[in-house]
Each structure stands twice: as C-alpha cells, then as structure tokens.
Design a protein around this nucleic acid. Structure first.
Length: 421
RNA sequence: GGAAAGGUGACUGAGUGGCUUAAGGUGCUGGACUGCUAAUCCGGUGUGGGACUUGUCCCACCGAGGGUUCGAAUCCCUCCCUUUCCGCCA
C-alpha cells in the first residue's frame, strides 16, 4: 500500500510511475476522496470535542449536587449527529483504503523502464549450456521411464497439474528441499520456519494477494482460509501489527507446498511439470531497515543463485522492467534455468524487494535510530521452486541411455545414490 | 463439539459509569552520586489520525465489532483468540 500522504504530495510522480507500470490508476479521484475524508474528520472531531467538554461539565455538576437535566436535553441530539458523521466517515475510509489496496507499488529508481517482458535486461548468467551428442528428451519422458512420477494418477485423484511423485522421484523432492534448507540455514544465516499452509484474509491482504488476485488462489470459504500460493504469505505476516524490537535484518527460510489456480494461463506450458497447481518451494524472507534493503535484496538473490551453482546448473538472472514488475514489488530479479529439451529458460525464482509496501499493508514496524516507529522493508525470493528445478536437473543431466546423473551436492541427501537409472 | 476462566502501553498488574490525563512495579533511557561495578535518588518513556499561526491544540485507541448513556477500559449483545477441564481424534 502506498502512503496517501506521499500520493498527495507527489501526485505527478505517482501518475508517471503508474504509466510506466501499465497500471490504470485514477490519482485525481483518489485525492478527491482523500480531501473529502479529511473534511469529514475535522467536522466530526469538532463535534466530539464539544460533546466531551459538555460531558465533563455534567460530571462536575453531579459532583457538586446540581441538577444537570437542562444541559442534558441540550446535548441529547449530539450523539445521533456524531454517529451519522462517523458512519459516513467509515464509508469514506473504507472506500479509500480499498482504492489504495488496488494500487500497485512504485517501481524503485533503479528498476529499468520498459513495456513488457521483452524489455527485461539480462543481468548475469552462470555456466554454459550442456552440449548433447544426442537429442535430449523432455523431462516427462525421462520421468515416466524412470518411474519418478505418475502424472496420470495425480490427475485422477485431484486433477491435471497436481503431480504425484513416486519412489526415487518422491525422494528427490525431499532431498532437494532438505539440501536447500540446509544451505540457507547453515551457510546463508537464515532461520528455518515451518508455517501454516493456510492463511486468512488479513494475511493474504497484507502481502498483496488480496483483494486484487482472489481468483488466482484456492479458497476454503467455509473457514475463511486460503491454501497459500507461497510461503511469503505466512512468513511475512508473522509480524503483522507488530513493532519489531529484535535486531534487523531478520532472515527466515521456509519450505511449504504452494497452491495456485493459474487462472488465465490455461493451455500454456501444461505438459509435465512446467506449470502445476501444487508445487514445493523453499522460500527466503527478510525484514530489513530501509537503509539496508537494497543490499539485502542483492544478497538474497545471490543466496538463491548459490543453490543452482551447487547443483551445477546453467542459469541467468534477469531484472524485471517496470512494465513486467509484480503488483507489490518495487524491484525484482528473476532467475531462470536452461531446459534443453524445452529449448527455453524456465523461471525458478523471483527475488523481490517490496520496500515498505507490504509492511504498510500488514502494519509491520520497527524503531529506527531516533526511537521513532517506521515501516520495515520486506524482501523475499524463492530459494528455489522445485518442479522446474527438477525439470532442469533431469533434462540437463540425462545420458543417451535415459539415465540421469545426480548432482554431487545431492548424493548425501539421496542416501548415496549418484545416478537414476 | 461441550463447560469454565480470561484478553488492559515493551513486560507485569490495578482499575465495576465522571481528577483515568490508564495507578503501582519491571524494563528502557537521560541526569545526580560513585575509583569501577552495584545500589540509591530525580526526570523522561505508547500508537494512529486531524488542524493550523510548526508549536501547540484536538480526536480516536484497554482483543474486534455493535449497543445503552450527556459521558464506557468499566454495563449489555455478537464474534475472535488464549488457558484449563471433558469429549473426539492423527
């Protein structure tokens, strides 16, 4: 959420930012609403101040044994008048807040300006494409032949996009999760969190999934809960409505399954594990001061990259331009793995700095050096998401005979197994 | 699912209709004292919003939302959460 005062004082800059984002935001209407709100506030507060004064004098009269009946009849109507004003104010407040909740974050100054994903610059890349002297097979063929997963049976019990892993495939999932959590906790200084896999409305609003993206999520309306689309939601909202007294940055990592309806992408990338409704992911979340957030964002991105380096996978980092930036993010790096049989890059991580946008929505604050409360900055990134990581491991490490060499870093986590054959 | 007791500033804990402007204590912090530490003494210590003459004034907030009243932390209603007991259960 943006600060209404900031919008009031920087209306032109906000308008320009929204154009860069391809976002349709009526700043003028918003400011008119803000103006109306402030008028109502001063009107109703004036009435309340008067009432408080009179009530106090009635108290004194009672104490002195005088009869306050005459004054009481004078004030009797005021309560209703105040309630009417309060009611109107509540409406305007709610409308304003709702409008603010639909406004995306301002891109950071360093975010490249661009129209869509074609304008996303490549920041760096690591390693090289693997050369094959045979035609590399797609992961769905490899996995089926090696009995790593059974997508037909997954579809039978839940629907397409709900993968079912079997045997060594299931173990590979578990091994990757544990490998990543160990790396982040032991080498990168993150504390592990095992959060709830369902969140309520407030949490979903705090990180920006609601109200705008309700149709992207599964829902359990009878209980007012949503299966989480990312661990970002529970882990960030842990500190909702709190003033943090611990030393910043706070760095958390969490494994969770993620549930996404993928509404609007029907028919795209549907084969195999390319785009699924349920997947496993290890996430990293940081709460930092505004001063440290840019640097912590860079470090978090490197922490995600380290996972891929240890697994010896060819990847590149791109920076999202203003036109492609996610709703809540101010700056974002995507990390993409090369998948030879797909002949394309697959996004496995999105590392975003939200500045104070989520903190303002979720009301997460800290005390700065002056002892004043201020909103923290939140940063998060996948470290990393599994299905596409599995795709890359299978497709890049395949041999002509259909066997797959496991990356050395995984051997200890696979009970010493070095090869899927 | 049933029953009971609770929910008050960073923490503890008083407060059952009007000097509550939330007591007292702990913690934090500034000062005094001190060879150092400790102890002691004195002062300061919530959040959000609004107004303008930017220094003050005003409004709201005691789990959440309603209600009663001139006036609610306090009385009433609904909901949420915590703890304990019972039931069921991996």
């Amino acid at each position: 959420m943006l600060d209404i005062r900031f919008i009031r004082e920087n209306a032109e800059a906000v308008k320009a930012a929204m154009i860069n984002r391809n976002a349709d935001v009526d700043v003028v209407a918003l400011l008119a609403l803000d103006c109306r709100r402030r008028t109502l506030v001063s009107d109703v507060e004036e009435l309340k101040a008067e009432r408080n004064k009179i009530s106090k004098s009635i108290g004194l009269m009672v104490k002195e044994g005088r009869d306050p009946e005459e004054i009481k009849t004078q004030v009797r109507g005021m309560g209703d008048k105040i309630s009417a004003f309060d009611e109107k104010l509540r409406e305007v407040d709610a409308t304003l807040r709702d409008a603010l909740l639909y406004i995306p974050n301002l891109p950071s100054d360093t975010t490249p300006i661009g129209k869509d994903e074609n304008d996303n610059p490549v920041v760096r890349s690591w390693s090289e494409k693997v050369e094959f002297d045979f035609e590399p097979k797609p992961h769905w063929d490899l996995g089926k032949a090696l009995n790593l997963f059974d997508l037909e049976r997954g579809a039978k019990i839940a629907g397409s996009g709900f993968p079912l892993f079997t045997g060594r495939g299931a173990k590979l999932e578990r091994a990757l999760i544990q490998f990543m959590l160990d790396l982040h906790t032991e080498k990168h200084g993150y504390t592990e969190i095992a959060p709830p896999f369902m969140c309520n409305d407030t949490a979903m609003t705090g990180t920006g999934q609601l109200p705008k993206f309700a149709e992207d999520m599964y829902a359990v309306p009878i209980d007012g809960l949503y299966p989480i689309p990312t661990a970002e939601v529970p882990v960030t909202n842990m500190y909702g409505n709190e003033i943090l007294s611990q030393k910043l940055p706070i760095c958390y990592t969490a494994y969770t399954p993620c549930f996404r309806r993928e509404a609007g992408s029907a028919g795209k990338d549907t084969r195999g594990l390319l785009r699924v409704h349920q997947f496993d992911k290890v996430e990293m979340v940081k709460f930092t001061t505004p001063e440290a957030s840019a640097e912590e964002h860079e470090k978090l991105t490197l922490d995600a990259e380290r996972v891929l380096q240890k697994l010896d996978l060819h990847y590149r980092v791109i920076e999202l331009c203003t036109g492609d930036l996610g709703f809540s993010a101010a700056k974002c790096y995507d990390i993409e793995l090369w998948a030879p049989a797909q002949d394309k890059w697959l996004e496995v991580s999105s590392c975003s700095n939200f500045n104070d946008y989520q903190a303002r929505r979720a009301n997460i604050r800290y005390r700065n050096e002056d002892g004043k409360t201020a909103f923290v900055h939140t940063i998060n990134g996948s470290g990393v998401a599994l299905p596409r990581l599995v795709i890359a491991i299978l497709e890049n490490n395949q041999n002509a005979d259909g066997s797959i060499d496991l990356p050395e870093a995984l051997w200890p986590y696979m009970g010493g197994l070095q090869k899927l054959a």
